[in-house]
């Protein structure tokens, strides 16, 4: 666990890690099967009750 090792990790794998995470997030958000779920969720806040 040397300094160089950490710096190497930060500078190289850090980037891949971010791209990887970003890929997962985008895939989840844009996955066609999820569309219906998200549309429902977006409208769900209007179904709550204690509206006057």
């Amino acid at each position: 666990m040397t300094h160089d090792f950490f710096v190497m990790l930060s500078k190289s794998w850090g980037l891949f890690y971010l791209i990887f995470l970003f890929g997962i997030a985008v895939a989840y958000a844009l996955w066609p099967a999820n569309k219906e779920k998200f549309d429902r969720a977006a409208k769900s806040i209007f179904h709550d009750q204690d509206e006057k």
Partner: peptide
């Protein structure tokens, strides 16, 4: 996990070096 990595990457090296 996602949030700690940023902090780890930036701070951890500072503790390991004398430089």
């Amino acid at each position: 996990v996602v949030a700690s990595i940023g902090g780890f990457v930036e701070i951890a090296p500072l503790f390991t070096i004398d430089e």
